[in-house]
C-alpha cells in the first residue's frame, strides 16, 4: 500500500490524471458508442494509459480507431500493435484508400494525405455509428484550441461551430446529442506538452522509438528536416545528409519533419522542451504553416 498523504495535497500531474480519468469514465457511462481516435503519437498513447487506469482491471469499454494514411512510420505502427495486444483492445483501422473508394474523400492530386484524413475519419465515425470520439488535442497547442470544450459538439457534417459552443461548467459535462451528431472528447485539454512528457517519464510509457534521437537520412526543405524515403527524394540542389534527429510529432512521413537532437531518453527530451523556443507544431508540421488560422479552418471541417 502506498503511503498516506500527510498533507492531502495532490500534485498538478496527479490532478490532471484524476481529471482525465473522470472524463473517460463519464463518457463511458453516458455515451452509447464511444471510440478512441488513436494516431500512434505520444498524446494518444497517454490517452490509452489514462483509459487503462480508468477502467482497470476491466478492458477498455470502447474500441480504438486509427486513420491509416498509408504513410505512417513503421515504428509507430509497431508501438500501436504492442499497446493493442497488451490491453486486449479492439482496433478499427480506416484507410484513406478505402475512403477514396467509398467516396468519402476525393483524391484530386493536390490535397495532402493529412487533409484527406478528415473525410476518412468522418466516414469511419458515420459508418460505425460512433457517438463520441476521444481525441488527444490539448489547449496549449494552438490558439483555436484554447477555446474548445472538453466535450466538443459536432453537427451532422462533423463540423465544429466555435461561436456556438455549449457552456461547460465545473466538472459537469453535457453529452446530449441528436441522431447523426457526435461529440469529440478531449481528456487531455488541460495538459501541456511538458506535462505529457513528464507523465511518459514517470509512468515509463512505451512510445514509438522515432521520438528519441537516432541517425537518419534527411534533406532540408522549407526550413524543415524531412526523412528521405520513397516519397521524399532530393530535388533541385537539395542534398541528403545523415544526421542525429528525433521527431517531435508523428504525422505522415511526407509532412512531418524532424529536428536535430541528441535526446535519447525522456529526461533528455524534457530538458530539451524546458528550454525550447519554438512550439512543437510550428517547428515540424507542414500542414499548419499555410496560414495563421490553418488549424481553425481544419477544425471547423472536422479535423481531430
Amino acid at each position: 500500500m502506498t503511503n498516506t498523504h500527510v498533507d492531502y495535497q495532490l500534485s498538478q500531474l496527479d490532478q490532471l490524471e484524476a481529471e482525465s480519468i473522470h472524463i473517460f469514465r463519464e463518457v463511458a457511462a453516458e455515451f452509447e458508442k464511444p471510440v478512441l481516435m488513436f494516431s500512434g503519437g505520444k498524446d494518444s498513447i497517454v490517452m490509452l494509459r489514462l483509459a487503462e487506469k480508468a477502467f482497470f482491471p476491466a478492458k477498455l469499454p470502447f474500441p480504438l480507431l486509427q486513420v491509416d494514411t498509408g504513410l505512417d512510420f513503421d515504428e509507430v505502427l509497431s508501438t500501436r500493435d504492442s499497446w493493442v495486444e497488451r490491453l486486449g483492445a479492439r482496433m478499427i483501422v480506416a484507410t484513406i484508400d478505402e475512403a477514396i473508394k467509398a467516396g468519402h474523400v476525393v483524391d484530386d492530386g493536390k490535397t495532402s494525405r493529412n487533409r484527406m484524413q478528415i473525410g476518412t475519419l468522418l466516414g469511419a465515425i458515420e459508418e460505425n455509428g460512433f457517438t463520441a470520439a476521444f481525441g488527444g488535442g490539448r489547449r496549449d497547442e494552438e490558439k483555436a484550441r484554447a477555446k474548445e470544450r472538453v466535450y466538443s459538439h459536432r453537427d451532422d457534417f462533423g463540423q465544429w461551430d466555435p461561436k456556438n459552443q455549449r457552456p461547460e461548467l465545473w466538472s459537469l459535462y453535457n453529452g446530449r446529442i441528436h441522431a447523426g451528431e457526435h461529440m469529440r472528447i478531449f481528456p487531455l485539454s488541460n495538459w501541456t506538452e511538458l506535462d505529457i512528457w513528464s507523465y511518459i517519464h514517470r509512468e515509463q510509457i512505451e512510445i514509438p522509438s522515432i521520438y528519441f534521437a537516432h541517425e537518419r537520412e534527411v534533406i532540408e526543405r522549407d526550413g524543415m528536416l524531412l526523412s528521405v524515403g520513397p516519397e521524399i527524394q532530393p530535388k533541385g540542389g537539395e542534398k541528403i545528409e545523415r544526421k542525429l534527429v528525433r521527431f517531435r510529432t508523428v504525422g505522415d512521413r511526407t509532412q512531418t519533419g524532424c529536428v536535430e537532437s541528441e535526446a535519447s531518453d525522456t529526461a533528455a527530451i524534457i530538458e530539451e522542451i524546458a528550454v525550447a523556443r519554438v512550439t512543437e507544431r510550428g517547428a515540424t508540421r507542414g500542414d499548419d504553416r499555410f496560414s495563421e488560422a490553418a488549424m481553425e479552418d481544419r477544425k471547423k471541417e472536422g479535423y481531430f
Binding site: E271, E272, A274
Partner: peptide, 9 residues
Amino acid sequence: GEEAAAVTE
C-alpha cells in the same frame, strides 16, 4: 531533464 520532470510532476 530529470529535475524538470520532477518539477512538473
